[in-house]
Amino acid sequence: MSLAAPPRTGRRTRRTRALAVGAALLIAGAVATTGGSAVASPGAEASAGAGERSTAREAAALTGTAKLYRSLGDDITFTFDAHLAAKDTDDPSKATGTFRFSHYLNGEGASAEVKVDCLVTGGKVAVVSGVITESDLEGAKGERVGVTVHDLGRKDRLGYSWASTGSPADQGPLPKCVSSAPFESVKAGTGDFRVLPWEPKL
């Protein structure tokens, strides 16, 4: 069973095509992302002695969970919890966290958990990559995958690196922070991806 392939018009194979990139179902709770999903917001720490709040924030983040829309009712979920610390703002490959994704239809499908190894964000768009550490999709474990998220409120969009091959196990070697355009739409009422923009000193 392949994880995540673009929907086909007019016909559907018996093999469930799985889509992508992180899942609340995968984490026995939720990722991400990837453990559980968190809102990407500036962090605040109490400063010693004065009780003041620090204005420092992490360099970038991608968090949240959403299901993708499919007319046949496929259950496709992505969950992200990916972060780039302020001290690592010059090196996106030092990003940490996880993301999860799953795809099920009529009781069949697969899921995967991914360890983040790169995160780049710009405005409301994020590209995250990582290596699959656990999956029930044969041949997927150990493969690097990438996902793109466009944070548009309740109309978020998503894309994934194996869009053209149909499966993470078939896409071949992938560099860090590489993915496809966010061509998929999230299911109405489920989009809560949050992107914290990266602001490197250029």
Score class of each variant (00 low, 15 high):
residue 136 D to P: 06
residue 198 W to S: 10
residue 46 A to H: 09
residue 182 P to I: 04
residue 102 S to M: 08
residue 34 T to H: 01
residue 16 T to H: 11
residue 165 T to G: 08
residue 114 V to Y: 04
residue 140 A to R: 01
residue 91 D to K: 11
residue 66 A to P: 05
residue 103 H to W: 09
residue 44 A to W: 10
residue 62 L to Y: 07
residue 96 T to A: 09
residue 119 L to H: 01
residue 19 L to G: 13
residue 96 T to F: 07
residue 184 E to C: 03
residue 41 S to K: 14
residue 140 A to T: 02
residue 115 K to G: 00
residue 21 V to Y: 07
residue 111 S to M: 10
residue 65 T to F: 06
residue 155 K to T: 15
residue 197 P to I: 09
residue 179 S to Q: 04
residue 128 V to W: 02
residue 147 V to H: 04
residue 49 G to P: 01
residue 162 W to V: 08
residue 16 T to V: 15
residue 83 H to M: 08
residue 105 L to V: 09
residue 113 E to S: 14
residue 65 T to M: 03
residue 81 D to I: 04
residue 167 S to I: 01
residue 8 R to F: 09
residue 120 V to C: 01
residue 134 E to Q: 15
residue 130 G to T: 03
residue 114 V to T: 11
residue 25 L to M: 09
residue 116 V to C: 03
residue 130 G to N: 07
residue 118 C to P: 00
residue 67 K to I: 00
residue 171 Q to K: 13
residue 153 G to D: 04
residue 159 G to F: 01
residue 69 Y to S: 12
residue 101 F to K: 00
residue 35 G to R: 05
residue 47 S to L: 15
residue 169 A to L: 05
residue 114 V to H: 05
residue 49 G to Q: 08
residue 41 S to Y: 10
residue 178 V to G: 00
residue 95 A to M: 01
residue 170 D to A: 15
residue 92 P to H: 06
residue 177 C to T: 06
residue 68 L to C: 05
residue 14 R to G: 10
residue 119 L to K: 02
residue 83 H to K: 14
residue 15 R to I: 13
residue 130 G to M: 06
residue 55 T to M: 10
residue 170 D to Y: 08
residue 173 P to N: 06
residue 185 S to I: 02
residue 80 F to G: 00
residue 180 S to P: 02
residue 125 V to F: 03
residue 135 S to D: 07
residue 191 G to S: 12
residue 23 A to K: 00
residue 101 F to T: 11
residue 87 K to T: 12
residue 108 E to W: 10
